[in-house]
Simulated scan of single mutants.
Amino acid sequence: MTPTIYVDADACPVKDEVYRVAGRCGCHVVVVANAFLNVPREAWIERVVVSDGFDAADDWIAERAGAGSIVVTADVPLASRCVKAGATVIAPNGKPFSESGIGMALATRNLMQDLREAGAVTGGPRPFTARDRSAFLGALDRAVVRLRRSPPAS
């Protein structure tokens, strides 16, 4: 089975890497954003522009992602929804979201949000590095290979 890769694209730093892996492996890519984004003109890349409503892109992806699909996102609540639907979910830094770790990721995200709302200076995410990009490429490639070897869902 060849997976579909859904990209939560508004702030995704690894779109080019997704295109590279998908082109090599023959995957369909769906790039979902709240505004128009330039994407390569390839038959296997689909651009979806959703309304600018709160979580519109997340809702669109979560309604379609499931077993046999890969979701690329740094958004922990979206990752949680997609993991629960059976999708393979990878952060742009290459870290996979899993059923066993998604609860802790959500709790940490919620704690940090509460601290920021209370006025605590929490910094922000660390800068995105070449090592993150490389880790993502490896994680995406492994996920595609694993899903292609999986028997089709009946």
Rank of each mutant, 00 (worst) to 15 (best):
I5R: 04
A9M: 11
R149T: 06
E117F: 10
M1A: 11
R20A: 12
P77S: 09
E17V: 14
N38S: 13
G23T: 07
V32N: 00
F54Y: 08
I70G: 02
G66S: 06
T129L: 13
A118G: 12
A62G: 08
A79I: 06
A105R: 15
A62L: 11
V29Q: 02
D8V: 13
D58G: 05
E117M: 13
S51R: 11
G23N: 07
L106Q: 11
A22E: 11
V76I: 15
L137K: 07
A153P: 02
N93D: 15
V48P: 07
E46M: 08
T73Y: 03
L78P: 07
A67I: 13
A105H: 06
A56M: 08
M112G: 00
A118R: 10
V18C: 10
E46D: 14
V18I: 15
G103K: 14
R20M: 06
T88L: 03
E17L: 14
P152G: 05
M1S: 09
A130W: 09
L115Y: 03
R20C: 00
A9I: 13
P151M: 14
I90P: 01
A105L: 13
G26W: 03
F54P: 05
C25E: 15
M104E: 12
V71R: 08
R149Q: 13
V71E: 11
L115Q: 01
R109M: 03
R133N: 05
E17P: 05
V39Q: 04
R142L: 10
V72C: 00
A120I: 11
R131F: 09
V14W: 00
A118M: 12
P127E: 10
W44G: 09
A143Y: 13
V48F: 12
E63F: 08
V7L: 14
V18Y: 04
C27K: 07
T2W: 06
K95E: 12
A74V: 09
V145G: 01
P127I: 12
V18A: 06
V72D: 01
R47L: 15
G101I: 03
R126V: 09
T88P: 01
D16F: 09
S98H: 08
S80M: 10
W60N: 05
T88Q: 04
W60F: 15
T4S: 12
V89I: 07
L140R: 07
R64Y: 02
G123D: 06
L140V: 06
S134Q: 15
P96R: 15
L140D: 10
G124W: 10
G53H: 12
I90G: 02
